[in-house]
C-alpha cells in the first residue's frame, strides 16, 4: 500500500497513535464519509424513484399517483395492446438500427479519412465535432427548418432551378424516421468520429509499416487488421449510441413532435404524453419500466464483458 493511500485510509501508524478515537474513525472512513451525501442522493432520487415508478405502474393512477387503485400487471397488458406504443417501440428499434448503422459506418469512414495525415486536419475535425455542442432541441429545430418544404432545402433547390425536387420527409409517415436519423447522425457523428480517430491513432505505426512491406493494400489492412483491432471502441460506441437512442426525446419533440400523426413516436415521447397530457400515470409508469428493461438488456452484457476484461 502506498503511503498516500495509507494516509487516506488513516492507517499510517504515527497518526494513529496520536489521534483521538473520533478523529481516527474519520480518518479511516474519510472516503466513505466524503461519498455518502452523493450516495444518499443517488439512493433516493435514482433507485428510490425507480422503485416508486415501478410501484406506480401497478396502479390505475390517473393525474396523480394513487396506491389504493392496485391493478397488478394490468397496465403492462394495456401497454402492449396500445397500437401507439407498438409504433413507438418499433420506431425505437427502426430509428435505433438505422442511426447505429449510419452513424457508426459514416463516423468510422470520416475518422479513417481524417486519419490519412491530411492537411488542415484540426479544421475538419472541428467541423465534424461542432454539432456535438448543440443540444438535441437546437438540432431538431435546425433540421425542422432545413427539411421544411416551404423554407428549407426544397425551396433552395427550387430557386436553383430544380423545380421537380421534393423533400417531404417530415410530412410523409413512411420517411419521417429518416429525418430523425439524419438529424441524430448530424449531432452524434462528431463523438463517434472522435472515438474512432482516437482508436486509429492508438494503433502502432509499425503495423502499417509491416503491412506495407508485406504488400497488403490499405483497404485490406483496414478490413482485416485495423477494424478488428478497434473492437473495444465499437463496443463503447454501440453502448453510448444505444443509450442515447432510448433517451431520445427532445429531438423528436423539437423536430417532428411525434408526427405526422404518431408515426415518429418514440417510447420516451409516449411516456411523456401519457403522464402529462393524457393523465394516465399508471400506463406511463409501465412504459418507463419497459424502457428501463430495454436499457438494462443493453447495459448488462456490456458491463459483464467490461468487468471480465478488467479482472
Amino acid at each position: 500500500m502506498t503511503c498516500r493511500r495509507r494516509l487516506a485510509a488513516g492507517t499510517l501508524p504515527i497518526r494513529e497513535a496520536k489521534a483521538p478515537i473520533k478523529r481516527r474513525f474519520l480518518q479511516r472512513h474519510v472516503s466513505q464519509v466524503a461519498l455518502s451525501p452523493s450516495l444518499a442522493l443517488i439512493a433516493i432520487f435514482l433507485y428510490g424513484f425507480i422503485a416508486y415508478t415501478a410501484a406506480v405502474s401497478t396502479t390505475n393512477s390517473k393525474a396523480f399517483p394513487r396506491f389504493d387503485t392496485f391493478v397488478g400487471l394490468e397496465q403492462y397488458w394495456r401497454l402492449f395492446h396500445t397500437p401507439r406504443w407498438h409504433v413507438a417501440f418499433t420506431n425505437m428499434f427502426l430509428f435505433g438500427g438505422l442511426f447505429l448503422l449510419v452513424t457508426i459506418s459514416l463516423g468510422l469512414l470520416i475518422a479513417i479519412l481524417i486519419d490519412q495525415r491530411i492537411r488542415a486536419e484540426s479544421f475538419f475535425r472541428s467541423i465534424v465535432m461542432y454539432p456535438m455542442a448543440m443540444s438535441f432541441v437546437v438540432t431538431g429545430i435546425i433540421w425542422q427548418w432545413l427539411l421544411n418544404p416551404t423554407l428549407g432545402i426544397e425551396v433552395m433547390m427550387h430557386q436553383l432551378g430544380f423545380e421537380s425536387f421534393r423533400l417531404d420527409w417530415l410530412t410523409n409517415p413512411d420517411t419521417v424516421i429518416w429525418a430523425l436519423v439524419v438529424a441524430a447522425f448530424w449531432q452524434g457523428c462528431g463523438l463517434v468520429m472522435a472515438l474512432f480517430l482516437a482508436g486509429l491513432r492508438g494503433i502502432d505505426e509499425d503495423i502499417w509499416k509491416a503491412a506495407a512491406v508485406d504488400g497488403i493494400p490499405a483497404w485490406r489492412v483496414y478490413v482485416f487488421i485495423v477494424i478488428p483491432m478497434l473492437a473495444p471502441v465499437f463496443l463503447t460506441v454501440v453502448v453510448l449510441l444505444s443509450l442515447s437512442i432510448v433517451r431520445a426525446f427532445d429531438l423528436v419533440v423539437a423536430l417532428t413532435n411525434g408526427g405526422p400523426g404518431v408515426s415518429s413516436d418514440l417510447p420516451s415521447v409516449f411516456m411523456f404524453d401519457m403522464a402529462f397530457r393524457r393523465t394516465n400515470l399508471g400506463l406511463s409508469a409501465a412504459s418507463a419500466v419497459v424502457m428501463l428493461g430495454t436499457v438494462l438488456a443493453i447495459l448488462i452484457p456490456y458491463l459483464y464483458v467490461e468487468t471480465r476484461e478488467r479482472a
Binding site: D206, K209, A210, A211, G215, F224, I225, M229
Partner: peptide, 21 residues
Amino acid sequence: VEPKDRDIAMVFQSYALYPTM
C-alpha cells in the same frame, strides 16, 4: 519502388504482429 516490390522483409522493434490474427 513501393516497399512491397523491393523484395525485402522487415522485423520491427514492437514486433508489429497483426494482433487479431
